[in-house]
Amino acid sequence: GKELVLALYDYQEKSPREVTMKKGDILTLLNSTNKDWWKVEVKATANDKTYERQGFVPAAYVKKL
């Protein structure tokens, strides 16, 4: 199945390749080969529509579930 990670801290994206997350968010882990930056998929809701974004977050800010 898919691997999930838990956001340990809030993170505000600093570039278009990154994604914003809030502490407590559960994210889908896409790639953890880089030890510093993990690629995740974030589900977000805006205007009653759910959309998914993929991007990088600092590996130290998340932990595998």
Rank of each mutant, 00 (worst) to 15 (best):
M21T: 01
R53E: 05
G1F: 12
K2P: 13
P58C: 04
N31R: 05
W37I: 01
P16K: 10
V5D: 00
W37E: 03
L65N: 03
T50G: 10
W38Q: 00
Y9W: 11
Y51D: 09
V40F: 02
L65H: 05
Y51A: 13
D10L: 02
L29I: 04
D36C: 14
V57K: 00
T45Q: 12
D10N: 07
V57D: 02
N34F: 08
G24F: 04
F56T: 02
I26P: 04
D36W: 15
N31L: 07
R53F: 06
L30A: 03
K35W: 06
K22M: 08
W38L: 03
N31H: 06
D36M: 12
N31A: 09
Y51H: 09
G1N: 13
L4H: 10
T20W: 05
G1Q: 13
T33S: 14
L4I: 06
K2T: 11
N31E: 13
Y11M: 03
V40G: 00
Y9G: 04
V40S: 01
F56K: 01
E13W: 05
K49Q: 12
K22P: 00
N31V: 07
K49E: 13
V62D: 02
L8E: 03
T50C: 15
E52D: 14
W38S: 01
G1T: 13
Y9H: 10
A60C: 14
A44P: 08
W37F: 06
A59S: 12
P16T: 09
D36I: 13
V62E: 03
A44R: 12
N34T: 06
W38K: 02
I26H: 03
L30N: 00
L30F: 04
V42R: 13
W38A: 03
A59F: 02
Q12S: 10
L29A: 00
K2V: 14
Y61E: 01
E52C: 15
V57T: 01
Y11K: 00
W37N: 02
F56V: 06
N31F: 06
K35D: 11
T45Y: 12
Y61F: 11
V57L: 02
N47M: 10
K22T: 08
M21R: 00
K14W: 03
I26L: 08
V19E: 02
D10R: 03
V62Q: 02
A44V: 15
K49W: 10
K14E: 07
L29H: 02
L65M: 08
G24R: 00
P16G: 09
A59D: 02
D48I: 06
P58S: 03
L30V: 12
V62H: 01
A7I: 03
E52F: 15
L27G: 05
M21Q: 01
S32F: 05
N31M: 07
N47D: 12
Y61K: 07
T45D: 10
E18F: 06
S32A: 11
K64I: 13
K43L: 14
A59Y: 04
S32I: 06
K2S: 09
K63N: 06
D36V: 14
M21F: 09
L30C: 06
T20P: 06
W38V: 06
K14Q: 13
L4V: 08
V40C: 03
T28W: 13
D10W: 03
G1M: 13
K43Q: 13
A44M: 15
A44T: 14
E41F: 06
R17L: 13
K39F: 15
K63Y: 09
P58N: 04
K23W: 04
K43D: 08
I26Q: 04
D25K: 02
K64L: 14
K63T: 13
L4N: 06
T33G: 09
F56N: 04
L8N: 03
Y61D: 03
L65G: 02
V42D: 03
E52A: 14
K14L: 09
S32V: 06
L6N: 01
A44W: 15
K23E: 06
V19Y: 03
T50Q: 13
K64Y: 09
E18K: 04
D48L: 08
